[in-house]
């Protein structure tokens, strides 16, 4: 922890995990969508399900989906802003199972271009967040460093081909994890990288033989409070 983990962040109250983290989580979903969201169903789990009204977690999540930063005073009036922006939403308290973090939300969203996505994430404390699933792909995305997620056929050479592309782009891998399913013979890989990927890298990865799906997630750049 550094100085600004102790003094800060600047945020809208009352709770760093239930308000600031919720706003950041909503905003990460908005950034992943890369476009306006027209409809959202938010499944709230654990402590979020129990206390979301009292902590303004609902207002914070909607503010995030509208792309407001966690310190924006308009956060309190986010329901009105959603109405104006044409964002329809509903909250469903639910139980996502024992393994889910107590402050977890599953977002089912309909984007402006008609596409539908499901994103699951949690507010893990002190305003920090972690996305754990995007459209059935398991990830671990905190919004701090870029990550690459892909699903590929479980045979030799696929990972080497991706690593080769990263090497050519002079990108260092900070963290990686591979999981595979014996039934489907598909593997899922998650790479955290230390620098920004060049444009077109996602396309190049998708073109590697054996890759079924790939996605590059960029960090959430949060502007400083004015």
């Amino acid at each position: 922890m550094g100085l600004f983990d102790i003094i800060g962040p600047v945020m809208i109250g009352p709770s760093s995990s239930h308000t600031a983290g919720a706003a950041r989580l909503g905003r990460l979903v908005r950034k992943l969508a890369g476009q306006e969201i027209q409809e959202a169903t938010l499944y709230l789990h654990g402590s979020f399900a129990a206390t979301y009204r009292g902590h303004g977690t609902d207002k914070a999540l909607i503010a995030g989906l509208l792309d407001l930063p966690p310190w924006d005073e308009r956060l309190r009036g986010s329901f009105e802003l959603a109405k104006k922006a044409g964002l329809r939403y509903r909250f469903v308290p639910t139980d996502l199972g024992e393994d889910a973090h107590p402050n977890t939300v599953r977002f089912d969203i309909l984007c402006k271009d008609g596409s539908r996505h499901t994103v699951t994430g949690a507010s893990v404390g002190g305003g920090q967040v972690e996305i754990s699933e995007i459209d059935a792909l398991r990830v671990r995305f905190t919004g701090e460093r870029p990550i690459i997620v892909c699903r590929h056929h479980d045979h030799p050479g696929v990972i080497a081909a991706i690593a080769g592309l990263l090497y050519e782009a002079r990108i260092n891998i900070g963290n990686m994890q591979v999981d595979r399913s014996r039934e489907t013979h598909l593997a899922q890989m998650y790479l955290e990288i230390d620098s920004f990927p060049p444009p077109g890298l996602e396309k190049e990865i998708k073109a590697i033989p054996g890759i079924q799906d790939a996605m590059i997630l960029r960090p959430l750049e949060e502007e400083q409070v004015q």
């Binding site: 102790i6 945020m11 809208i12 109250g13 009352p14 760093s16 308000t19 600031a20 310190w71």
Partner: peptide, 17 residues
């Protein structure tokens, strides 16, 4: 201000701001 969803600086936390 914190309890009313106003803007504060967490230091170290929102509850003790």
């Amino acid at each position: 201000t914190n309890a009313a969803m106003g803007r504060i600086v967490a230091c170290p936390t929102a509850g003790s701001c």
